[in-house]
Simulated assay, not measured.
Amino acid sequence: MKRKVTLLSILLLLALSVTQVQAQQESFLSDVNYSYLDKLIATAKKNYPEVKARQAAVNSSRALLTQSKMAWFDAFTASYIYSPRNSLNLVNPTFFNGYQISISVNLGTLLAKPFATKAAHETYNIAQYQQQQYNLTLEATVKRLYYSYLEAQADLRNRSRAVTDGEIAVKQLKYTFQKGETTFHDYNEALTSLYNQNSFKVITEMNVLTAKANIEEYLGVKLEEVK
């Protein structure tokens, strides 16, 4: 009789192990919601400070480009002289009366302007490219963090099922042990396995919270607020 009960105990432990292996092989791909993922990416692009910094750099370089284009007029200097018609200037005699307008050109400044404008234009392009590159990096980062979060959740479900199965096995072995039909060794093995599964579950719960915190760092809001 004891040999049969011992065999039953072993089968229960094997069933628990098979359940754990099946749980570990469960895929979380069906949990991926690509529409929700797009919302997460859009939220990160809206709230993450680095995105705002990149946009500010683009705006600044655009303003400098406009300023450089307008600076072409810096090469030209206009001035005027007014000589009254009824006055006589013996020190600096003039042949024209009334208003006299003169325009001077600084050739050095004029020749340097095309290069300055080109440099400003390239700076603007660089700012745009850097913004585009960061947007791609941000998208990839949010995707990885979202997948990690789903993986942690799936692992937690697996661990929770393992704990439930372990509790069932311990309950069954406790009943047979109290009746003297199961050895203490088998009962103790089941208790140890349940303790380990509970420990794994606690670690997995921490992994879920960590994964959630990681993605919320980029979102700027709680994950639950993204609808």
Rank of each mutant, 00 (worst) to 15 (best):
Arg3Tyr: 06
Arg3Gly: 02
Leu7Asn: 09
Leu8Glu: 14
Ser9His: 00
Leu12Ile: 07
Leu13Lys: 03
Leu14Glu: 11
Ala15Tyr: 07
Ser17Phe: 14
Thr19Asp: 05
Val21Tyr: 08
Glu26Met: 08
Val32Trp: 12
Val32Ile: 15
Asp38Ser: 14
Ala42Arg: 15
Ala44Met: 07
Lys46Ile: 13
Glu50Gly: 04
Val51Pro: 06
Lys52Asn: 06
Gln55Phe: 00
Gln55Ser: 07
Val58Tyr: 06
Thr66Tyr: 11
Lys69Cys: 14
Trp72Met: 05
Ala75Asn: 10
Phe76Leu: 09
Ser79Gly: 10
Tyr80Phe: 05
Ile81Asp: 02
Arg85Asn: 01
Leu88Gln: 13
Asn89Ala: 04
Leu90Trp: 06
Val91Ile: 02
Tyr99Cys: 03
Gln100Arg: 12
Ile101Val: 11
Leu110Arg: 03
Thr117Asp: 07
Asn125His: 08
Asn125Gln: 11
Gln128Met: 07
Tyr134Glu: 03
Asn135Val: 10
Leu136Pro: 03
Tyr149Thr: 07
Asp155His: 05
Asp155Ile: 04
Ser160Phe: 09
Arg161Phe: 09
Gly166Gln: 04
Gln172Pro: 07
Gln172Trp: 11
Lys174Arg: 00
Tyr175Ala: 14
Phe177Arg: 08
Gly180Trp: 12
Glu181Tyr: 10
Glu181Gln: 05
His185Leu: 15
Ala190Leu: 04
Thr192Asp: 04
Ser193Asn: 12
Asn198Arg: 12
Phe200Ser: 04
Lys201Cys: 09
Lys201Ala: 00
Ala213His: 05
Gly220Lys: 02
Gly220Cys: 07
Val221Pro: 07
Lys222Gly: 15
Leu223Cys: 14
Val226Tyr: 15
